[in-house]
Every structure is written in structure tokens, then in C-alpha cells.
Amino acid sequence: MMTLAMGNADEKLKILQVGHGEKFKKRLSDMGIYKDAQVKIIKNDIPGPLIIDIKGSRLILGRGQAQKIMVEGV
């Protein structure tokens, strides 16, 4: 188990927990980031936000936000 922010480019991961407040958690799940969803990291350059692939679409996610999402390798 690690945070999404620790993942490497091209890594496929499964979301275990979204440790955000209710409101943002809802927003993330509306965009496809929710527990059990699969993500692929497209870009993870430190510092700066990440680009991830969710169900075939690309999302920019702030680094701070990615640090609160727990994932594991698929």
C-alpha cells in the first residue's frame, strides 16, 4: 500500500482509499476516482501535479490531493 503520489509513470494501480473530505471525495468519485477504481499514472514529475488515466480519460490531480489517495499495484 502506498499513496498515488508515489506511483511511477505507466504504473497501473487500484484505489484502496480516498482520504478526502466528503465534498471533494464526492467530486473525485464523480470524475471517476473512487475506491476500487483503477488508475494508470501518465506523468508524475516532482514537484507539480500528476496526470492520470481513469477509464480512458485524462485527469490532472494536484500532488497534495494525490498524497491522500491510497493505492496498490494491480
Binding site: 478526502h20 471533494f24 467530486r27 473525485l28 470524475m31 476516482i33 501535479p49 496526470i51 480519460s57 485524462r58 485527469l59 490532472i60 490531480l61 494536484g62 497534495g64 490531493q65
Partner: peptide
């Protein structure tokens, strides 16, 4: 504000 936005093609 948390940052999440779509990256359209």
C-alpha cells in the same frame, strides 16, 4: 481548493 481537472485531448 483541491486541484482536479480534466485534460481534454
Amino acid at each position: 481548493a483541491p486541484f482536479v481537472m480534466e485534460l481534454p485531448p
